[in-house]
Amino acid sequence: SEEEEEEWRRAKERGEEIIILGILWKPNDEEAERRIKEALRRV
């Protein structure tokens, strides 16, 4: 969703871990980033 995407962007800017759509994303975690982008597209 729009607000999840916004939340994720803010976490990326701050360089902090975030759990979004049930996926743990850490800074520079390209695999998780790809999965999150896929999940955001499906929503």
Rank of each mutant, 00 (worst) to 15 (best):
S1T: 14
S1H: 15
S1G: 15
E2K: 13
E2M: 14
E2G: 14
E2N: 14
E2T: 15
E3T: 14
E5K: 04
E5W: 14
E5Q: 08
E5L: 14
E6G: 07
E6Q: 08
E7G: 08
E7Q: 15
E7M: 15
E7A: 15
E7K: 15
W8G: 02
W8M: 05
W8C: 08
W8S: 01
W8H: 02
R9W: 10
R9T: 09
R9P: 02
R10Y: 08
A11V: 08
A11P: 03
A11W: 07
A11K: 05
K12G: 02
K12T: 08
E13N: 07
E13T: 07
E13V: 08
E13K: 10
R14L: 10
G15I: 04
G15W: 06
G15H: 05
G15F: 07
E16G: 05
E16D: 10
E16T: 09
E16F: 11
E17A: 12
E17C: 10
I18N: 03
I18K: 07
I18T: 08
I18G: 01
I18P: 00
I19T: 13
I20L: 05
I20P: 00
I20W: 05
L21C: 11
L21T: 01
L21E: 02
L21G: 02
G22F: 14
G22C: 14
G22M: 09
G22A: 04
G22Q: 03
G22E: 04
I23L: 07
I23Q: 00
L24K: 11
L24M: 07
L24G: 01
L24F: 08
L24E: 03
W25K: 00
W25V: 01
K26S: 09
K26T: 11
K26Y: 06
P27A: 03
N28Y: 12
N28P: 04
N28A: 07
D29T: 01
D29Y: 03
D29N: 06
D29W: 06
D29V: 02
E30P: 10
E31H: 05
E31D: 13
A32Y: 01
A32K: 01
A32L: 05
A32P: 00
A32F: 00
A32M: 04
A32I: 03
E33M: 05
E33R: 03
R34G: 06
R34A: 14
R35Q: 13
R35N: 06
I36W: 03
I36Q: 01
I36E: 00
I36Y: 02
E38P: 00
E38Q: 06
E38M: 03
E38S: 04
E38G: 02
A39R: 05
A39H: 04
A39W: 05
L40H: 03
L40D: 01
L40A: 02
L40C: 00
R41Q: 13
R41E: 14
R41I: 09
R41H: 13
R41K: 14
R42M: 12
R42T: 09
R42F: 10
V43L: 15
V43Y: 14
V43G: 08
